[in-house]
């Protein structure tokens, strides 16, 4: 029993990281049909920004606050310098350019922080283990789960209960009609892009104490994140939640129950979903 609870919590924790990464990607895609493959690199940048900020401030929370801001700033630069110009370029060019960006980021981070794995310590508030459902589980990982749930709730309120949320949903449904009602969809996209970047940065900062921070940590998580987006259905919060949970759990349980199949299990899931629900489980557009 303990085994199952621990693995379920591990799965949940991975799901939350995947959620923080995929939600930005999926809403950006839903809103503007823009594919940003460099999203994983922004996650790495967040982890490194956290490492440096922790070193500078001496506290975990320095990184926790600084990383999302730094990555959002990187998003502003990326958007104004490159993405805005590429909006009408078509998916092929976008994929190629953002794919190229992965390597640019990779090398920039190598040059700045080196190749060796770095890490940061858990915040003192959340060190050690806590008792939950009869198992002693690392407190910091529980914090990740709680944070993920809080972000889900926050985004749900934002999207379903506020005017800007209604604007985003309208833009995902039909950006041309939204513009015909006087909505500046381009600016909306910019705001959503920056929020997505900040969440990727947050994911990097939160992952830094549990994973080792290396230049290629973003490339490793990019594929599962893309699979979450495709399984969940492009552009939807519900889809990102469902997709993250499925991928997180299958990856975690696959690794312990059938290690020899672990690497293929999420692809099998992807294939199954694409066969039965080609648009994903909860596509934003019916």
């Amino acid at each position: 029993m303990t085994f199952w609870i621990v693995q379920a919590l591990n799965g949940l924790q991975l799901s939350m990281l995947l959620f923080l990464l995929s939600i930005g990607l999926t809403v950006i895609f839903g809103l503007m049909h823009f594919v940003n493959l460099a999203h994983g690199a922004l996650y790495t940048l967040g982890a490194y920004a956290a490492v440096s900020a922790v070193a500078a401030t001496g506290t975990y929370w320095g990184g926790f606050v600084f990383a999302p801001l730094a990555v959002a700033m990187a998003g502003v630069v990326l958007y104004t310098g490159l993405i805005r110009r590429m909006r009408k370029a078509g998916p092929m060019s976008q994929v190629l350019v953002t794919f190229g960006l992965i390597f640019v980021f990779l090398d920039l981070m190598r040059i700045t922080w080196g190749d060796l794995a770095l890490s940061i310590a858990e915040p003192t508030l959340f060190t050690g283990r806590s008792e939950l459902l009869g198992v002693a589980y690392p407190t910091y990982r529980l914090f990740i789960i709680g944070l993920g749930l809080a972000v889900m709730l926050g985004l749900w309120v934002l999207l379903s209960r506020t005017q800007i949320g209604a604007m985003i949903r309208a833009g995902v449904d039909n950006d041309q009609m939204a513009a015909c009602l006087g909505i500046n969809v381009e600016r909306l996209f910019f705001i959503v892009f920056c929020i997505g970047c900040a969440l990727a940065g947050l994911a990097g900062a939160v992952a830094a104490p549990v994973l080792s921070v290396t230049p290629d940590m973003g490339t490793q998580i990019l594929i599962p994140t893309l699979i979450v987006v495709v399984i969940g259905g492009l552009g939807s919060l519900k889809g990102a939640i469902a997709g993250s949970l499925m991928v997180g759990f299958i990856q975690t349980f696959g690794a312990v129950l059938a290690p020899q199949l672990a690497s293929v299990s999420i692809y099998a899931l992807l294939a199954a979903v694409l066969i039965f629900r080609p648009a994903g489980l909860f596509p934003a557009k019916a």
Binding site: Q163, A166, M167, R169, D173, N174, L181, A284
Partner: peptide
């Protein structure tokens, strides 16, 4: 907009 309620369509 299909994902918005009638009221939200109007308020927008």
């Amino acid at each position: 907009f299909p994902s918005l309620t009638v009221r939200e369509n109007l308020e927008l």
